[in-house]
Design a protein around this nucleic acid. Sequence first.
DNA 1: ATCGATTTGTTCGTATGTATT
DNA 2: CAATACATACGAACAAATCGA
Lengths: 254, 254
Amino acid sequence: MIPKIKKLNLSNQLITIIIELIETGQWEVGLKLPNEIELASSFNVSRNIMRESMKVLEKFGILSSKTGIGTYVSENALANIHNMQFFEQLKSNSTVEDLLETRLILEPELAYYATLRSTDEEIEELISILESDAKKHEVTAFFHDDDFDFHFKLAKFSRNLLCENIIHSILDQLKSSDYGKINMYVEQKVKEESINEHEYLIDAMRKRDPLLAREIMHKHIFSRISVINSSYNTNMILSKNIEKNRLKKAKTNK
Amino acid sequence: MIPKIKKLNLSNQLITIIIELIETGQWEVGLKLPNEIELASSFNVSRNIMRESMKVLEKFGILSSKTGIGTYVSENALANIHNMQFFEQLKSNSTVEDLLETRLILEPELAYYATLRSTDEEIEELISILESDAKKHEVTAFFHDDDFDFHFKLAKFSRNLLCENIIHSILDQLKSSDYGKINMYVEQKVKEESINEHEYLIDAMRKRDPLLAREIMHKHIFSRISVINSSYNTNMILSKNIEKNRLKKAKTNK
DNA sequence: ATCGATTTGTTCGTATGTATT
DNA sequence: CAATACATACGAACAAATCGA
C-alpha cells in the first residue's frame, strides 16, 4: 500500500491550528487578537493567507472582525467549533442508517405537531402535492421531488424551524446517497402504497388527530425503510426486531 | 425608525451572489469555473477577494478547487448550500422554544435506543456521572457540566452519530442562551428532583426496558421545561396542553 | 520524458475606509 | 480636527502542481 500524502494548503493548516488554540484555551473566548499583520508574521504566513483563514473562521462564528476595531474570539466560539465539526460530518460522513433512523425519530413527532399547528389551507397544500404525485401514472422516480416536497412541507408545518432544517438536510443527503438512487427504481406497487400512506396521514390531519398522524408517519417511514432493506441491502439493519442483535454486537465489540 | 444600513463587505456579498447563481441553476453542478483572474475581473473584485470568497465556499463543500486544474461547482453543492443555511440558523437564530422542543422530540427516542444498544459498562459510566453530580451538595449550577455530560453521553450511547451531534449542538446553544443562565440559579429542590429522574432512567436502562426509559426521559425533559416556563418566562409556551391555543393562533394569523 | 501552458497557491507592497482617542 | 490603529481592498509577481503535446 502506498500511503497517501495529503498536502494541506496553508490556510487549512492555519484554520486547524487556530481552532486548536481556542479549544485548548490558549486563546480565550473574547480575546482581542493582534492585528492582521502581526498575526500573519507570528504564524509565518502572508497577510492574504491569514485573511483567508480568518474569513472562514468568521463565517463559522468562531472569530469576529470589526473594521477599525480588531478581531476577537467569538463569545460562542467553542459551541461553533463543535457546530463546525458537526457540519463536516453532515457534509460527508453520515451513514444512511443514521439518516434513516433520524427520520424515523423526528418525522412522526413532526407529523404530530403539524397536525396540531397547521392551518386548513396548509393541509390543502399537502393534498395538492399528493394529487400531482398520483397523476404521474408512469413508474417515475419514487423518491422524487413530490415525495420530498410532501415530507419537507410537513416538517415546515410543524412550526419548528430547527427540525425543519434538520429534515431538509437529511432528505438532501439521502437523495444523493445510494439509497436515493435505489429508491428511483422502486416498482409501481410500492409507489402506490406510499401514496396511500400519505393519504391516510392527511386524513388524520384533517380529523386533527395528532396521535394517529404520528402513528401513520412512523409506519410509513418504517415500511419504506424495510422495503429498501429487504430488496437491496441486507446490511442496512434498522428494524427494531433485530436490535437485540445490535446489543449483542455492542457487547462483544467491547 | 431609522433603517439599519448593513454594509456587507465584498467577499460576503460575493458569497451570496455565487450561492444564488448555483441555486438558480445559472452555475450548474459540476461546472468548471473560469480561472480566478477571469472570475475576479468578471465580478469586478480583486483576485484576493475572489479567493477569500471561494475559500469559504470550498470549506462549506459548495465549490472545490484543485491546484493546477481549476475550480468546480461541487456535485452536492445544492445539498451543502442548504446545510450552510441550516448552520447559519443553528449558529444564532434558533429560538429557545425550538431548541427545547427538539430535545423533547429527540432525547426520549435516544434513551430508547441507548437502552437497547449500550453496554453494561456504559451504563456504569452514567452512574459515575450521577454520583459526582449528587456529591455536590452546594446549590451550584443546575444546568452544569455534569447534567450536560449525562445527556450527551446518553446520546452517544444511542449509537447514532448524527443525533449525537444534533443534541450536542443544541445543548451548547442552550447553555449560552438566557435559558442556560436562568438554569444556573434554580433551587436545590428542583436540582434533587432532576437527579432523581436521572436515577430512574438508569434503573430502566439496567432493566433493559426501552419503553420505560423513553417515557422517563420524556417526563424528565418536559418537567424541566415546565419549571422554567412557570417561574421565569410565560412566553416560553411548550406545554402540549396549550397547543390548541397555538392552533387557533395559527388560524387567525392566516 | 521533457517542455510549455494553464491554474491554483502564496507573497509583498500599497492605498483606502472606518472607528477610537 | 488631527493622529492613530485597524480592517478592507487592489495589483503585480513568483512558486508549485497538473496536463497535454
